[in-house]
């Protein structure tokens, strides 16, 4: 029986690869946009503008304090109620982008604030504009602190993307759910699902470790 299910599973591989592609598409798009938005929010959060700073802070707390599944449902089921109708795919990307932006915002703000204040003062005293201070003096130094946890966060977000299967996006997790109804071997089916996530995440975990080591070396050299 087991070998019959196994060969069935092998035949379903193309279906799984399609799901894998969907997972890569949803998390890839969200990570790119989330990184851009997260950096902008993080820079504002570390700035001196009190109103914008606390607005973003409140939003980040709200998102971090609620389950991602609920956020996905709100975007997909509740926004149509006020006239914003979205397909499952864009709804998933929006929800995951926002989640990514919130986590990345905190990492970026933390990295910027960890740069000693004397650096900004020296840059300011030499006549560099606020943008130039950020671009040439603050961010290059903050990146050392930001990069390792940023890539680590990517790993978490790729895994979080499995939640969007709940609104019908056919990602790897969804493919697992659909397949297990035909092939009632949960361990086998979801074992494969797990392996596919691991295939995406493992290189990222390695990258994060390498960055961590390299940044520590640089930090001690400085």
């Amino acid at each position: 029986m087991w070998s019959f299910y196994f060969s069935e599973l092998i035949h379903s591989l193309p279906f799984f690869l399609k799901g894998l592609w969907m997972t890569v598409a949803v998390s890839g798009l969200s990570l790119i946009m989330g990184t851009i938005i997260g950096f902008i929010w993080g820079i504002i959060r570390a700035s001196r503008n009190k109103i914008l700073r606390s607005l973003i802070g409140a939003w980040v707390d709200l998102i971090r304090g609620t389950p991602f599944l609920v956020q996905v449902f709100i975007v997909f089921f509740i926004l149509p109620g006020i006239g914003i109708e979205l397909e499952a795919f864009p709804a998933a990307v929006i929800a995951l982008t926002n989640l990514a932006a919130c986590f990345i915002c905190e990492i970026v703000a933390g990295g910027i604030l960890a740069v000693p204040s004397g650096q900004r003062e020296a840059a300011r005293a030499s006549g560099l504009s606020a943008y130039q201070q950020l671009r040439y003096i603050i961010l290059p130094q903050a990146m050392r602190t930001i990069l390792p946890p940023l890539v680590g966060q990517y790993v978490l977000l790729v895994k979080d993307s499995s939640v969007v299967s709940a609104i019908g996006v056919v990602d790897v997790t969804r493919v697992g759910w659909l397949t297990v109804q035909r092939i009632p071997e949960g361990i086998m089916v979801f074992g494969l699902v797990g392996i596919l996530y691991f295939v995406i995440c493992y290189p990222l975990i390695n990258l994060s470790n390498i960055l961590e080591r390299r940044m520590t070396v640089v930090a001690t050299k400085l």
Partner: peptide
């Protein structure tokens, strides 16, 4: 500055 504040 007292603490130099060179860009590391």
């Amino acid at each position: 500055f007292q603490s130099f504040n060179l860009y590391p």
